[in-house]
Each structure stands twice: as C-alpha cells, then as structure tokens.
C-alpha cells in the first residue's frame, strides 16, 4: 500500500517536473492495426496513411504531436477521459459517434465498404459474413436480412476467418480489403456491390475541446486546397480510391 503511494507520488512529481504550458504537445490516438490507414511497421512505430497525414497536419497547425496506440474497443472512452487529445484511426464519421465526440471535416471522401470472398458467385443475402466488432460494417451486416454476422475482435481475424472457411465473406472498408485481395493471388475476390457507409473518415475530438479541433480542421482544409491530401491518398490508398 505504502509503496504504491510513494510510486504514484514519485510519478506525479516527475510529471510536474517536466512542466510547460498546456497543449504544447498534442497526443494522437490510433489503433495501429488497420493498414493502409495505420499499422505498426517493422521498426515498431506507427506508420501508414494516417501517420503521414497526422504529422503533416501537426506541422501545418504548428503543434508538437506524439503518437499513441489504443485498443479499438476503448478508443472513444479513452479520448473522452483525456488520455489523448485526438483520434486518428480510420474512424468513419457517423451520427452515433457524433453524439459523443466531435469530428473534423473528413480527410477521405466517403469511401465504399466492400465484401471479399473466396468464391465470386456468393449469395450475400444468405452468407456468413465476418466483420470487426463495433464497426459500421458490423452494424450494416445485422441489417442485411438473411446474412449471418460473425464478429471478431480485430481486422486480421476477420480475414483469417474467410481464408479458413469459417465465414463466407468479410465486410470492411474497401481500402483495407484492396491489398488483401491483391496479395491473395486470386484466391479472394470482391463480391456484390460496394456499399457507401458513413460520411468519410475524420479526426475525433472531445466536445469540450473545440479550439484544437478548429486547428486541425483548418489544416485539413489547407491540405485539400493545395492538393497534397489527394497526393497522399493516391500514395497510400491507391489510384482507384476516391479523391477530393
């Protein structure tokens, strides 16, 4: 008991010793498991479209940023309780989420979600479809009538389930599925129509933190205006991904 109090006190003092004004460092929270948007590279660092985008936005907004990873499940509660200041994790702008946090304008156009399967002539209406728990795709599958939803905790497992036959198809953001389908050597292919879900991807902020959101919003706008955002989209998400 005593030890822990001393430990915490020591930490608190350390934290205080490193004093400076508020918001001099902005902490960006991401999942680190959703390529090409964000993933952990071979060196163990956050990498991908959002890494490059986030760093550029911080530069334009003249902020110092730190990256941190958090489990997808608790990514919003940890933002609202102040463990980091922004979410930049391939998070689609939805009404549900807007009740709790504020988004910047989108930094990718509403991009389609798609189904990928091992056989091209699959009837999606009666198929078993895997999706990551708590995503807009999982919510969509539940409203598809005859389809059966199979939920997994992380995106890798949803793909693995299709490969091992547990699920007939996987539903996810098309940008996430494109490299998977390409690399599968013809085993997997897109099936059915793409579905437009959500209002594009944006950065999430606490509702009580409008100034910070404003800064990033302005930075995103400036990247849209000078075409650098489109260039980033092409570089990371591919030629076919919708642009502004």
């Amino acid at each position: 008991m005593k030890n822990i109090l001393i430990g915490t006190a020591a930490l608190a003092m350390l934290a205080t010793a490193a004093l400076a004004e508020s918001h001099s460092v902005v902490r960006l929270g991401t999942e680190g498991a959703y390529p090409p948007y964000n993933f952990i590279n071979d060196a163990g660092e956050v990498d991908g479209f959002e890494r490059e985008l986030g760093d550029e936005l911080c530069k334009r907004a003249e902020l110092t940023c730190e990256w941190t990873t958090n489990d997808w499940d608790s990514i919003i509660p940890n933002l609202t309780s102040g463990n980091y200041d922004a979410i930049i994790a391939g998070m689609s702008i939805t009404d549900e989420r807007k009740d709790v946090i504020d988004f910047t304008q989108n930094y990718t156009p509403p991009s389609p979600s798609a189904f990928a399967a091992m056989s091209a002539d699959l009837d999606l209406e009666s198929a078993v479809i895997s999706a990551q728990t708590g995503t807009i795709q999982a919510a969509h599958v539940t409203s598809m009538g005859g389809a059966t939803l199979l939920e997994f905790a992380n995106p890798d497992e949803t793909i693995a389930a299709v490969k091992n036959g547990e699920a007939d198809a996987v539903m996810a953001d098309k940008d996430f599925l494109i490299p998977v389908v390409e690399e599968s050597g013809g085993d997997m292919s897109f099936v059915g129509e793409d579905v437009a879900l959500g209002g594009g991807i944006g950065m999430g902020f606490r509702k009580s933190d409008p100034e910070l959101r404003e800064k990033f919003d302005t930075a995103i706008q400036s990247m849209k205006d000078d075409g650098t955002l489109n260039a980033l989209i092409v570089k990371h998400l591919g030629e076919d991904s919708p642009k502004f």
Partner: peptide, 9 residues
C-alpha cells in the same frame, strides 16, 4: 471475448 466468434450477435 477472446476465443470463439459470436454468431448473429
């Protein structure tokens, strides 16, 4: 939570 997938919620 960690073992088996949930089917149809």
């Amino acid at each position: 939570f960690s073992g088996f997938p949930a089917r149809q919620q």
